[in-house]
Design a protein around this nucleic acid. Structure first.
Length: 481
RNA sequence: CGAGGUGUAGCGCAGUUUGGUAGCGCGCUUGGUUCGGGACCAAGAGGCCCCGGGUUCAAGUCCCGGCACCUCGACCA
């Protein structure tokens, strides 16, 4: 990659000031901007195009597993929220209220949805009559509002965009298998489309969703060593079915409550992409979701201007059949300026073409992830570009995977645990007795939380990192966003 | 919600100590020369100095009171 100096002077150094770097990247890459309302953001075209690509890939995966989209209202009657005790307790502190319409007080205050279990449960009670109506597999793409005290662009804003799936099943087993199926959909979406490696696992009682029986999650590791909860899938059991009276008449002619799940991922994932793949030069986007996959930068000298521009047109035409391509033919910026600008915006491949290349019948391709430059013959350009996009996608994933491996440490001693948190951070795989008191104490003493109890692992003897009691449960700790 | 910090041109800041004509860099506009890693010259445009009171002949600057945003902590996707 050569010297880092002199490439980008307009964003903070990632190594020296990670938080400022993150903000600079979001703003300078024009993903988002601060809105006039506290804690809210505007997602700008470049950021929104990224979200749209993410949406369409995940949406296809959800449809392939039998889910259908629907839309439920933004406003929820106060009384709905109160029905499930744990649920209110979990969300009450951060709900936004609508109490007036014009000048008149509303008869019943409305909450702006922080999540839709309650309204959807109400509707499901109307719609479901028979075991033949099951399963119900509905997903919604929507905005939700949670009035957060501290906000950060994409990672935590008062309003955010997400998808929330809400399903009903005939049996507990079927609900559990749906919960796990979605977790797998999320895992593959993150690894295959976003190039973000994740740990899958179960949340502890303390960390689970308010109102769920069990919460599964995918956890990702950011390059500053902090964890990001990237998606959750909840087995709701019959908790909401009972309070909303969602029942069906079973084959045996008995009235039974349905078994439910809910699950979601949000625009927070954009923050994850930035913090996993970004570098000193700015954003680096995985090709599968990058709004622009290839940017053409012509070298325009006066003598060869016309021929170069016409070659650009031809290349753009050809490449537009195999990828998302854009040509930057602005005359008021120098090529060097454009190189930096498009790198900052995370475009996976830059294609340079100038008089020298025209003579040689080639173009120059430059990879965003490695900075590597390759001369590629004009013939077969489509194949070279498609292959390179695949390579960048894989390269980003492998680099991120190596980082997670290098920063996941087996820890059996509390002093080491604390020391790692102060210095390198990352995931700590440590024994835990299962007692919530230890979990809370660790959080208070070190700031680390249990990110998850990883799935598919054999029991292994150890002594609780905090109290020293014998246990065979090992969990992932980290400081989290 | 606690602790700090910052509010002056679109952005980043100086000016506040010691009250006296509103400044710098970048960006923006126009014209010209350039173009293989953030080019250069020339001429321009752009201000409720966060808001409200007060002191003063005079306030960006001093006093009082608000508000907003950012960072770090406690809580959450």
């Amino acid at each position: 990659m050569g010297d880092q100096e002199g490439f980008v002077k307009h964003i903070a150094s990632k190594a020296e000031d990670f938080s400022q770097w993150y903000i600079d990247v979001v703003l300078r890459a024009e993903l988002a901007d601060y809105a006039p309302v506290r804690g809210c953001m505007v997602i700008r075209p470049h950021g929104y195009a990224l979200w749209e690509n993410m949406q369409s890939l995940l949406d296809a995966r959800l449809k392939a597993t039998g889910h259908k989209n629907a839309y439920f209202p933004l406003f929820i009657p106060e009384s709905f929220l109160r029905k499930e005790a744990e649920h209110v307790e979990g969300f009450a502190p951060e709900v936004a209220w609508v109490t007036k319409a014009g000048n008149e007080e509303l008869p019943e205050p409305l909450v702006v949805r922080p999540t839709s279990e309650t309204v959807i449960g109400h509707m499901y009670a109307k719609w479901i009559k028979s075991w033949r109506d099951l399963p119900v597999l509905i997903n919604q793409w929507a905005n939700v509002v949670r009035w957060e005290k501290t906000t950060r662009l994409f990672l935590r804003t008062s309003e955010f965009l997400w998808q929330e799936g809400h399903t009903c099943h005939r049996t507990a087993e079927e609900a559990e298998s749906e919960t796990l199926k979605i977790l797998e959909v999320y895992r593959r979406f993150l690894t295959e489309d976003l190039a973000i490696p994740v740990v899958t696992g179960q949340k502890t009682e303390r960390e689970k969703f308010a109102g769920a029986v069990r919460t599964y999650c995918i956890e990702a590791l950011m390059t500053d060593g902090r964890a990001l909860q990237a998606g959750t899938s909840h087995n709701l059991g019959q908790n909401f079915a009972k309070v909303f009276d969602i029942t069906y008449l079973d084959e045996d002619n008995e009235l039974k409550h349905v078994w439910q799940t809910s699950w979601g991922v949000s625009t927070r994932l954009i923050g994850g992409i930035i913090m996993v793949h970004g570098d000193e030069r700015g954003l680096a986007l995985p090709p599968k979701v990058a709004p622009v996959q290839v940017v053409i930068v012509p070298i325009l000298a006066a003598s060869s201007r016309e021929v170069v521009l016409s070659a650009v047109g031809g290349i753009q035409e050809r490449l537009s059949k195999v990828c998302r391509v854009e040509a930057d033919c602005r005359e008021e910026y120098s090529p060097g300026w454009k190189f930096n600008e498009w790198e900052l915006k995370g475009v996976p491949i830059r294609l340079e073409i100038g008089p020298r290349d025209l003579k040689a019948g080639q173009v120059i391709l430059v990879r965003r992830d490695t900075g590597e430059k390759t001369a590629v013959p004009m013939d077969g350009l489509e194949t070279a570009v498609t292959n390179m996009l695949d390579d960048v996608q894989k390269g980003l994933y492998l680099k991120a995977k190596r980082f997670v491996e290098d920063n996941t440490r087996i820890v059996e001693d509390y002093d080491t645990f604390k020391d790692i948190l102060e210095t390198r951070r990352g995931f700590m795989d440590a024994p835990w007795c299962g007692d919530q008191a230890c979990e809370t104490a660790i959080k208070e003493e070190t700031g680390a939380t249990i990110r998850c109890i990883p799935m598919g692992r054999l029991p292994r003897p150890g002594k609780c990192i905090h109290c020293g009691k014998d246990t065979d449960t090992w969990v992932y700790f980290a400081r989290a966003y």
